[in-house]
Amino acid sequence: MTFWEKITGNDMTKELQTFESRAQKLPKDYQAAWEKIKADLWPHSDFTGRNLMPILDGVLGLLEETAADGQRVQEVLGDDIKGFCSALVGEEGANAYRDKWREQLNDNIAKKLAK
């Protein structure tokens, strides 16, 4: 069973299809990251797939904007996609990961402004 079949509650199918067609427009490395993110979010999809939708929508938005900006996907997501995903859905341990996002934000700015 695919990820999509598993979380699909029919009326959600259409939304998921648009997600996929958006993802296909991303650069290759971004697409690979998207696949990984979906796989990681799979365990969260047993119930409440619907509430996962805005989160997936947000990630795609993030990927689309940063890809358009020419950033490397690693710079956006970091190396730990699993951690990234649990922070996305606000799981236990998400706070520690959000702290990492905070650090990343300030570090990136310091680095880029120094250039």
Binding site: P54, I55, G58, V59, G61, L62, E65, T66, D69, V76, F84, A87, L88, R98, W101, R102, Q104, L105, N108, I109, K112, L113
Partner: peptide, 15 residues
């Protein structure tokens, strides 16, 4: 621009 883009990235993640 640099700071704006980093902020936007962060906000997209936090959601």
């Amino acid at each position: 621009q640099i700071v704006y883009k980093e902020i936007q990235k962060y906000l997209f993640k936090v959601g």
